[in-house]
Computed example of a mutant assay.
Amino acid sequence: MPEDGHLPAAHRKSVRLFLCGDVMWGRGIDQVLAHPCSPEIYEHYLRSAEGYVLLAEQANGPIPRRNGSSYVWGAALGQLERMQPDARIINLETAVTRSNDRMNKGINYRMSPDNAECLAAAKINCCVLADNHLLDWGTGGLLETLTLQKLNIKTTGAGRNDHEARTPAVLNLGKARLLIFSFGSTSSGIPLDWAATSDALGVNLLPDLRGECV
């Protein structure tokens, strides 16, 4: 090892990452997949998620129903295969649940757990969960979402307590070990009472940093 602690360029290992934000497969998207949730929603302008499908059809023509797990990715799957990233990481902006324990917040996103194979279809390695829709369908909805690990998909940013929510996902890529942390903030619309604590599940919520001196 050189005295400055840096490896020579010939010995450095590069890692190629696929990073995708705000993946939302609720509402109309869930409805056109093979195993949709109940279409009932609680938005002031629509009461059925089927309404979003109809709006899309008015603009783009007929949309097939009961689509398979690769449907939501379209041409992106081919691009991922060409690029062959070492890790595929998304911000999952949708609770994966059939829970009906709706939070009264205006817009509630959920997709059926039976449609979660969409994540496996793109070989997603990790979902970051510290966002403002994770608890849209209550604590039961969060617990169902955490079962993504059954698909061999790591999660980070939420958990059954604050220790679990803070713990990074660990991906062993062979040539590197990747730690993935996920933090949420009230400025992104996460309510304070969604924060995980020592005895309550929730998200990894940052403290209010306004007025802090660094």
Rank of each mutant, 00 (worst) to 15 (best):
G141T: 09
M111W: 04
G21C: 06
N204E: 04
H11Q: 15
K175F: 01
K154M: 02
R210I: 07
G5M: 10
S188D: 12
H133E: 08
E57K: 04
A10T: 11
K175E: 05
L148D: 14
D86A: 05
Q58C: 00
P8K: 09
T147P: 11
H6L: 12
A10V: 12
L178A: 00
Y42D: 15
T139R: 15
L142Y: 11
L33D: 08
R210V: 03
I63W: 06
G141D: 00
E57R: 05
A49T: 07
L142T: 06
T167M: 00
R160S: 07
A59K: 07
S48E: 15
H35T: 01
G74Q: 11
E164F: 02
L54H: 03
K150H: 04
M1G: 14
P85Y: 04
A59M: 05
N125G: 03
A130G: 13
A10W: 06
L46I: 03
G184R: 08
D22G: 13
G68V: 02
D199I: 08
N152H: 03
W137L: 14
I153P: 01
T197R: 15
D208L: 14
E144I: 10
G74P: 13
P8T: 13
D162W: 15
A116C: 02
V203T: 06
L209H: 10
D22A: 09
A200L: 06
A200G: 02
P191C: 14
A196F: 13
L77F: 08
M1I: 13
I124Q: 00
A169P: 01
A200C: 10
G211W: 08
R12G: 03
H11S: 13
G138L: 15
V23Q: 07
Y42S: 15
M83G: 05
P64W: 09
R47P: 00
L80T: 01
E81I: 08
L173I: 08
L19Y: 12
G26I: 03
R82F: 00
E3Q: 12
P36A: 08
P36I: 04
D86T: 07
S187G: 03
T145C: 08
A59E: 09
